[in-house]
C-alpha cells in the first residue's frame, strides 16, 4: 500500500491561527485543504512537508454568500460537491457548476475543495509518477535534475495547469482574497497563476487562499468545455472557459476565453476574443474564433492523447463552447464532455 511520509499536523481553528501557523515555517509547511491533490503527491514523494496546517475547521474559509445580482463570495474550503449543489450558483453561474461537476469523480469532489482546485499542482506525465519511476528516468526539472523530458532542450518546465475551475473563473473575472500574518490582499484570479511549471502560483508560501469573489452576473454568459478521455476521473487534456456579454443588438461587447491544460497557467486566447468582439455570434464568427484559438495553445506531450491532435481540438472545443453560449445548434455528432459516454447530464 502506498503510504504517506511522516509529518506533524496542526489543525487551525481560525484564519488568524492558520496564518500564524504557516508563518512559523512557510517553506516546510503545506496547507491541507481537501488533500485530494496534496496527499497523493506526498505519497509519491513529489511534495514534501514536515508540517501540515489543516484548514478544515477554519470557519472563515467556508460557505457561499451573496447573490448573482451582486458580488458572490465562495469560501475556499467549500467542497466541490457542496458548490455544485448550491442553488444560487446553479442559477447565477451554471457554467461554473458545470466546471465543478467535471472535476475528477463524485467520490473525490466530496473532499476536494475549490481552493485546492485553484492551487492544484501543475501536472506532467514525467512528474506525476512514483518515486521509483522518477528514479528510473533520472528525475525531471520540476523536482530534481535539469531536464524537462517534454522538451529536452527547454530551460523551463512545461507541466500543465490542470484545474477545471480556473479557466472558467478567469474568464468571468473572478478575484481571490489572500491572507497572511502580513495582512490581506485581493487580486484578480489570473494573477494567482504564473506560466511556470515549477513556481506556478503567484501566492507567497505563507499566504492562505481565503475566498473567491465572483463579479455580478450582469448578463454574462459563461461555460466550460472539457476534453478528456473518460466520462469521469480524468484531468482535462484541454479546458475551455468562456464568458461573454452581448449588447442590445446581439453583438459581443465583452468576451474572455481561457484555455486550461495547455500551459502552466490558464492561457488567455486573446486572438479568439478579438475574432468575436464587435461581432454577433454566428456560425461564421464562432468558427473564426475557434480557428483563431488553434494557434494559441502550444500543447506538448505531457498528458493523455497526442499533442498535435490536442492542438487541433482547441479550435473544435472553443467553437463548441461558443456555440453553446450563442445558442447555436450543436454540431452533429459533437461529443459532449466525456469521450465514450452516451451523454453527459450537466
Amino acid at each position: 500500500m502506498l503510504r504517506l511520509p511522516e509529518f506533524t499536523l496542526h489543525q487551525a481553528r481560525s484564519l488568524q491561527e492558520a496564518c500564524a501557523l504557516v508563518a512559523e515555517a512557510p517553506q516546510s509547511t503545506r496547507l491541507l485543504a481537501g488533500g485530494t491533490d496534496l496527499l497523493p503527491n506526498m505519497k509519491r514523494r513529489h511534495q514534501h512537508a514536515q508540517r501540515l496546517v489543516a484548514l478544515r475547521n477554519v470557519s472563515e474559509l467556508r460557505g457561499v454568500a451573496g447573490h448573482g445580482s451582486g458580488e458572490m463570495r465562495v469560501g475556499a474550503m467549500s467542497t466541490l460537491s457542496q458548490l455544485a449543489r448550491n442553488q444560487e450558483l446553479q442559477k447565477s453561474w451554471p457554467g461554473f457548476v458545470r466546471a465543478l461537476r467535471s472535476i475528477s469523480s463524485p467520490v473525490l469532489r466530496t473532499t476536494g475543495t475549490i481552493g485546492g482546485n485553484l492551487c492544484l499542482d501543475t501536472r506532467c506525465n514525467y512528474y506525476n509518477q512514483s518515486e521509483e519511476w522518477r528514479q528510473a528516468i533520472g528525475g525531471c526539472m520540476k523536482e530534481v535534475g535539469d531536464t524537462c523530458w517534454v522538451a529536452p532542450s527547454s530551460s523551463h518546465c512545461w507541466a500543465i495547469s490542470a484545474s477545471d475551475s480556473a479557466p472558467l473563473l478567469c474568464a468571468i473575472g473572478a478575484r481571490v482574497r489572500l491572507a497572511s500574518v502580513r495582512g490581506e490582499r485581493v487580486i484578480p484570479l489570473e494573477q494567482l497563476f504564473v506560466d511556470d511549471g515549477i513556481a506556478y502560483l503567484g501566492k507567497a508560501a505563507d499566504e492562505v487562499l481565503v475566498d473567491i469573489l465572483l463579479p455580478p452576473v450582469a448578463n454574462t454568459r459563461a461555460t466550460y468545455w472539457k476534453l478528456r478521455r473518460r466520462g469521469s476521473i480524468d484531468f482535462p487534456v484541454l479546458g475551455v472557459g468562456a464568458a461573454l456579454r452581448l449588447d442590445a443588438h446581439g453583438v459581443v461587447e465583452h468576451v474572455r476565453i481561457y484555455l486550461g491544460a495547455v500551459a502552466s497557467a490558464p492561457l488567455r486566447a486573446e486572438k479568439a476574443e478579438e475574432a468575436l468582439l464587435g461581432q454577433p455570434l454566428t456560425e461564421a464568427s464562432v468558427r473564426a474564433a475557434g480557428e483563431a484559438a488553434r494557434g494559441v495553445a502550444n500543447a506538448l506531450d505531457n498528458t493523455d492523447f497526442t499533442m498535435l491532435w490536442r492542438r487541433q481540438m482547441t479550435a473544435v472545443w472553443v467553437e463548441g463552447a461558443l456555440r453553446e453560449l450563442g445558442g447555436l445548434a450543436p454540431r452533429a455528432h459533437m461529443p459532449e464532455m466525456p469521450l465514450g459516454a452516451p451523454g453527459m447530464v450537466v
Partner: peptide, 16 residues
Amino acid sequence: FPNMLEYKSPTFLDMP
C-alpha cells in the same frame, strides 16, 4: 502510465 488514472479503464459513463 503505470497507474489507474492514466491507464484508461472505462467508467460507468463510458459503458455502452
